[in-house]
């Protein structure tokens, strides 16, 4: 079988769950080969092998991570040239999609972004996407070059399938042109102890109705082990960071459970959460459009409802 290249998403060497999802999906198309860029590839190889990586290409050249996006695209282009993979899977993060974009142009290959499913179809790799704020489901294929697919987090359940995980150091030559946008400073986000928004199984979001006090939202999220999101109104008001914004101009999330507290549910917000499996809302306004989407809704004040729910959840969990 052909190799399928999977670009590893990691934070300082710790492989993120979305990568295990990609490896699981890649097995449907061929033999997964992980591509690890940065330091810590050899240590990460073990976990990558556990999820089916037969090979782990390790690119440790510091130039590759010192500049934005372009060097990673060159690395993948060189590997595509060398191994002629059946497909390249990347995480549908901002970096992942931009690496994929440049790789597509470099290799003359079709690119599909934000896939929620990937499979081997009659005409090659076939994908499912959810578009127009989740109102349509689209099936698409790549008709030219090596299929490059950016896959959304939570699109598959990671399944272990032990493979060799052979570490293959890769020497790359990065062009001067790719070394044009230098990353001069990196400030890690403050650790909250909560899962990352796009890969969390449960997301609790707050909006205008919080009036700027995210305390009850965070407490409820913590009782559920959830990530915290925010509507654009809350972010624009400066109540919560933009990196937590759910919606058209923020993150698109698709968790098992989405809780919207004090969020009216404008199209801008719906575009970011409508494909969540189960949707719950708490809002004072019974006319709020968010109630059109919910599996369960409470018309009430989040400052009463959430603390009570938090206590009940804690009690139920013991």
């Amino acid at each position: 079988m052909s190799e399928v290249l999977v670009l590893v998403d990691h934070a300082d060497g710790v492989v993120r769950k979305s990568t295990f999802e990609l490896l699981t999906l890649a097995r449907r198309l061929g033999d997964p080969s992980a591509v690890f860029v940065g330091e810590g590839g050899e240590a990460a190889a073990e976990s990558l092998a556990r999820y089916g990586a037969a090979k782990v290409y390790v690119v440790a050249d510091p130039d590759v991570t010192a500049y934005l996006v372009a060097p990673q695209a060159e690395v993948l282009a060189q590997l595509v040239e060398q191994v002629s993979p059946a497909a390249v899977l990347v995480p549908a993060s901002s970096v992942g999609k931009e690496v994929a974009a440049r790789l597509a142009v470099k290799t003359g290959s079709g690119l599909i972004t934000d896939a929620v499913d990937v499979r081997a179809g009659g005409e090659g790799v076939e994908t499912t996407q959810s578009v127009f704020a989740g109102s349509y489901t689209v099936t698409a294929t790549v008709t030219r070059g090596t299929p490059i697919i950016a896959v959304k987090p939570n699109s598959a359940t990671p399944e272990e399938a032990s493979a060799a995980g052979e570490v293959v150091p890769v020497e790359v030559s990065i062009s001067d042109a790719a070394k044009a946008a230098r990353i001069t400073d990196t400030q890690p986000k403050k650790a909250t102890g909560r899962p990352e928004l796009t890969e969390a199984a449960i997301v609790v979001s707050g909006g205008r109705g919080t009036g700027g006090d995210f305390g009850p939202v965070e407490a409820f999220a913590d009782s559920l082990g959830a990530a915290v999101g925010a509507s654009r109104a809350a972010v624009d008001a400066g109540w919560y960071p933009h990196s937590n914004q759910v919606g058209q101009t923020g993150k698109q999330v698709s968790p098992q459970l989405y809780v919207a507290a004090g969020i009216s549910g404008a199209i801008q917000h719906r575009a970011g959460m409508q494909t969540s499996k189960t949707i719950v809302a708490v809002n004072k306004d019974e006319e709020a459009p968010i109630f059109e989407l919910v599996d369960f809704g409470v018309v009430g004040d989040l400052f009463n409802v959430l603390p009570q729910a938090t206590e009940a959840v804690k009690a139920a969990k013991g």
Partner: peptide, 22 residues
């Protein structure tokens, strides 16, 4: 185009959920 949309389908509207008044 290097990709092709082979099918599109409107998602069925979500079923009306349970709404309670606090």
């Amino acid at each position: 185009a290097w990709t092709k949309v082979t099918e599109f389908a409107k998602r069925p509207p979500r079923e009306k959920g349970t709404i309670v008044v606090d």
